[in-house]
Design a protein around this nucleic acid. Structure first.
Lengths: 213, 213
DNA sequence: GCTGATTTCGAACAGCATTCGAATTCCGTC
DNA sequence: GACGGAATTCGAATGCTGTTCGAAATCAGC
């Protein structure tokens, strides 16, 4: 549990992330396997992180930070481009869901870590509070609210948050339930093209923030 | 692996479902615990279902069938009410997401079984094909497509399927990420009232199927 | 009431995460 | 450069887990 992460700790983080990104390697996600990959022993996991769960949490947190940085950078770019006017709605939505979509299309991006982590956090939603720390972290999402409010000032802040939440649900469905998405669209949408998927999502999400006719 | 389920098999199913519905009992979801609850032995699980995973799959399948029956009954009712005119859009959406929302609000409904199962199926999306059998079962969802096409004939069938998929994503977000939903809406939405939540969802999903101005 | 099939049981077995004390390495200080 | 205390690594041991398997027990048909 060192606050100054040493070389072994980062090797364990890297090994765990690599295993989570490998296709179908979740069955082999054992302390022994991780330790082997990191040239360490299972005890090292307990020493540096406390438990395997907390190691995975640390890995997820690291990936999550990267994703959020990208999201917020895109939001800032969208805001700056139109400042002092309100940003473009479609560009804001693309900033919100774009990184997830692009990362999900790339197996080495670490998105699989997040998929696995959130699945596990949902399955064992009892007790273990260190899961919630990440799940409940919505601060960066909240950064989108004031900008969306500028775009759709007739909407309540609750309305904005609700629509934001819905948009995130659509994002999750597309990134995590790819099989279902393919079946419902009759395999006639190219889900491998992130830009296409993003524009399709914008097409569906944007009307939520437009005035009802 | 009996096709004629006997008394012990159904007791195991019931015990497993009960444990999955109990708050925070997922940690205790072991073969020995399930067997104890069902007045049987761990070997009985292997004998009747092959493995613990397959027992859980069987439980999820049973619950899933109940939910789908309710969904399709509501869809049929919506269709019959307006026949031969196209059904009301809002009523169709309520038929799609309503049962999930209501079940999620009731701990004893068995919705927790589905939450747990889909989480697990996503986490171990490799190999184990018996998970996919349920995850990929979208036939009942497809029953909504022709009705929605009647309502919005200007939309492609791919467009309809895509929007249907998005609606299901919103549903999942609200039922499974309740905490996040509460935080984003600043705790100012009463998520315990299913009818309110459903109308809020309709408010967001319906515009997807309306003509763009 | 016997016989063959179905079902139940309890004792194993291998694998798992974790614990813990000893051994080792590291690093500031003499 | 060598000491000594802290930080780190290690390997054996512990108590879980799901599953296997052969022997008992129960059941159904004649």
């Amino acid at each position: 549990m060192s606050n100054r992460p040493n070389i072994t700790a980062t090797r364990l983080l890297d090994a765990c992330e690599a295993l989570l990104c490998e296709r179908g390697a979740h069955e082999e996600l054992t302390t022994r396997r991780i330790a082997l990959e990191a040239q360490a022993t299972p005890s090292a996991i307990a020493y540096h992180f406390g438990s395997q769960e907390e190691l995975i949490t640390a890995v997820a947190e690291r990936v999550y930070r990267r994703l959020n940085a990208e999201r917020l950078a895109l939001l800032r770019k969208a805001v700056d481009r139109r400042s002092p006017e309100p940003p473009d709605l479609e560009e804001v939505i693309a900033a919100l869901v774009g990184p997830s979509i692009r990362w999900a299309a790339n197996p080495q991006s670490g998105y699989r870590v997040l998929s696995y982590f959130t699945s596990m956090a949902h399955a064992h939603r009892d007790g273990t509070a260190h899961y919630r720390r990440i799940i409940e972290d919505v601060e960066h999402h909240k950064a989108f609210i004031p900008q969306l409010k500028r775009i759709a000032p007739w909407l309540d802040e609750v309305d904005i948050g609700w629509r934001l939440n819905c948009a995130l649900g659509i994002r999750s469905q597309v990134t995590r339930s790819r099989q279902r998405t393919e079946l419902l669209t009759d395999h006639r949408m190219n889900l491998d093209d992130p830009d296409l998927v993003i524009s399709r999502m914008v097409e569906v999400i944007a009307p939520m923030f437009r005035r009802t006719s």
